[in-house]
Write a protein that binds this DNA or RNA. Structure first.
Length: 614
RNA sequence: GCGCCCGUAGCUCAGUGGAUUAGAGCGAUAGGUUGCGGUCCUAUAGGCCAGGAGUUCGAAUCUCUUCGGGCGCACCA
């Protein structure tokens, strides 16, 4: 499946040869192997019955096995029923065509073909990097795709929590990754502000009571759990004896942020709402609370480096009759039926395990009905692909929504739902059972980003795959700030920038790669860096295909490590006791510049600042 | 009970289109380096890849099974 793989962009190392022709190294190798197979067949040494036998080229994890390797002899042995794969490899080598790129070939282990390339192909890669600069690593294979990625979408009843942090960076970086592959991408946040949501009502009510407290009402707060007591809180700034004692609801929202919202409402309208009619009052609290909460959420996400293109209000699905229309159309298509006073979707016909209620017997639409309308709306806006990021606790909902989307006439395959495994919170080793109602939300911005900065916070979340359950100890994360590999990576970038600055001070102009003597770069640590730089475009593609942004942080750490090795072994600028020829300095400056480009591009994709100085 | 996810070094985790000797960071131990910025480098120790069975020339990776942990099974959102 070698070539198909290549076409999908998995192994597409590309570079320019000295004539400026774009070459894809693995395709070159595949062709060479293929030619060798043909030659061997013609010579009667291989009974090959399939001229398009798949050739796989891979990068061995251990450098001693060459720059690339192929298991072709092993797969041939299996397919042809031969018995000695080392012997097959022998025959392939005997008929291997000459190539300017290949230094030599070796047979290893059970019959692996290891390719050792000449360093010239790495030298030439610097031409590509220089020419493409900010575009190096990107491609256009997703051109024509319009992708909407919806993530975070936390209920507007509390601040963005540290738990949301993981999905937040994941979605943001995924969007950037898809853009590097040529797709048009937008980031969307869904606001669950539906009027039939009791949550919002309760939330606004909690704010209203806290507001009254600012007017001097004392408030009785019921015990939060079995271990705590009922408390009587005085009015603010003091209790007004003429004002009635209010009771905070048992299932009210207890967080400090509720008081903050109440306070800002108080500062805005003063005592005005005290005497307002009940209806006006509740309307005011509902809208003001929602507005404030969303502003707070947006602010926290911005501090985390995330900007959404669209904030989509669930309520508009009702005000614009989308929900109603969706339901009507499902009925018209006979994908819904009445039973026990409710309207049911025949979701089992679309892969769900049971049918679902669309309209309750009290005539209110269910959440899934609105969600189907919402996703239909996303498609109607011209998006060719939808990506949702949800917590793993929603996995039971996936089949339901997909069935609904399919019933509404859209291809559920164009809706990808990524489930991130759970993030559990720990504070100094103690589990935090958090919740907005309990009021012990650990906030993304205030409890983490404000302390360690968005770069460290983002990198921290990007270290691991979203498929692994994670435990976040905020206190530990803060204490370990200096151990965060983000600084190691940023430092490497600052160092590169510094060398280029110093070079200029010493009168070295950065020259075009085409005129420097690249053949001077032969040290292993130089070639290691260059090899890594050539892998960057592949890495972007793989990270995109696998929805795996954490590959980039790993890649960055590896590149930074190779750069430190290079720095240790190879002086770029001449020093007092370290003479370096001007030609070598120029060649190494080209390498430094290429590394700078790649590291900077990568950091931009993950939304971490490529600092020039630290 | 049914379904999904996870179990890899002391800790946090990569690796799961099968393939040559399973990796990184932190921590530990022993060295180096006063620098083109020490937020550095090198080396060593540490793993029956949760247990078992199977497929395969070859399994951390695929299949089955056991154990342990998480999550989900609404006319809630």
């Amino acid at each position: 499946m070698g070539e198909e793989v290549g076409e999908e962009g998995y192994y597409t190392l590309s570079f320019l040869n000295s004539e400026g022709v774009l070459l894809v190294i693995t395709s070159v190798l595949i062709e060479l192997v293929r030619t060798a197979l043909q030659n061997a067949k013609t010579a009667g040494e291989l009974p090959l019955d399939d001229d398009n036998f798949p050739v796989q080229i891979e990068t061995p994890r251990n450098k001693q096995f060459g720059d690339y390797s192929s298991n072709i002899a092993l797969t041939l042995k299996k397919a042809m029923g031969l018995n000695d794969s080392r012997d097959i490899a022998q025959r392939i080598i005997r008929h291997f065509p000459d190539s300017p790129h290949i230094d030599h070939l070796e047979i290893a282990g059970p019959g692996f073909l290891n390719f050792y390339l000449k360093p010239t192909w790495l030298h030439d890669a610097m031409l590509t990097i220089e020419a493409q600069d900010t575009a190096y690593g990107t491609n256009t294979r997703l051109e024509g795709e319009t992708i909407l990625i919806e993530f975070v979408s936390a209920n507007p009843t509390g601040p963005i929590s540290v738990v949301n942090g993981r999905a937040a960076v994941l979605g943001d970086v995924l969007a950037s990754l898809l853009a590097t592959q040529g797709a048009e991408v937008s980031r969307e946040y869904y606001i669950n502000d539906a009027l039939n949501s009791l949550q919002l009502e309760k939330f606004a009510n909690s704010v209203a009571i806290r507001y009254a407290q600012f007017l001097g009402h004392p408030v009785v707060v019921p015990p939060a759990d079995e271990s705590s007591q009922e408390t009587l809180e005085p009015g603010t700034p003091q209790t007004d004896p003429a004002k009635a004692v209010l009771h905070f609801p048992k299932d009210g929202y207890r967080g400090e942020y509720v008081k903050d919202i109440a306070q800002s409402i108080f500062e805005e309208v003063g005592t005005h709402l005290e005497t307002a009619p009940a209806e006006e009052k509740s309307d005011y609290f509902r809208t003001a609370t929602l507005k404030q909460m969303i502003a707070t959420q947006r602010n926290a996400l911005q501090a985390f480096g995330i900007e959404f293109d669209t904030w989509f209000y669930e309520s508009t699905l009702y005000t614009e009759n989308s929900v109603e229309q969706t339901i009507e159309s499902l009925k018209a298509q006979e994908h819904a039926y009445e039973k026990e006073g409710a309207l049911w979707l025949k979701s089992t016909e679309f892969g769900d395990e049971k049918d679902r209620v669309l309209v309750r017997s009290n005539e209110k639409a269910t959440y899934v009905a609105a969600d189907i309308a919402y996703h239909a709306n996303k498609f109607q806006r011209g998006n060719t692909k939808l990506i949702n990021i949800w917590g793993a606790d929603h996995h039971g909902y996936v089949a339901r929504l997909k069935a609904g989307v399919a019933a509404a006439g859209y291809n559920a395959k164009n809706l990808d739902i990524i489930l991130t495994q759970m993030v559990s919170l720990v504070r100094d080793g103690e589990a935090v059972i958090g919740g907005k109602r309990k009021g012990n939300v650990i906030e993304l911005k205030e409890d983490l980003v404000d302390d360690i900065g968005k770069d460290a916070a983002r990198f921290y979340f990007l270290l691991n795959s979203y498929e692994t359950p994670a435990t976040v100890d905020v206190e530990l994360a803060k204490r370990q700030t200096n151990d965060n590999p983000v600084y190691y990576v940023q430092y490497a970038h600052a160092r590169l920038a510094n060398i280029l600055r110093r070079a200029e001070e010493q009168g070295f102009q950065l020259q075009p790669v085409s005129v420097v003597d690249r053949s001077l770069l032969i040290e292993p640590s130089e070639l290691d860096v260059l090899r890594k730089l050539t892998e960057y475009p592949n890495e972007l593609t793989s990270a995109t295909n696998e929805y795996a942004p954490h590959r980039l942080t790993r890649f960055a750490m590896e590149l930074a490590s190779l750069l430190n090795g290079f720095y240790e072994n190879c002086r770029v600028l001449p020093g007092k006791d370290d003479p370096v020829s001007a030609e070598l300095t120029q060649a190494r400056l080209s390498l430094v510049n290429g590394a700078r480009i790649v590291l900077r591009n990568l950091l931009n994709v993950i939304g971490v600042t490529p600092v020039e100085k630290m």
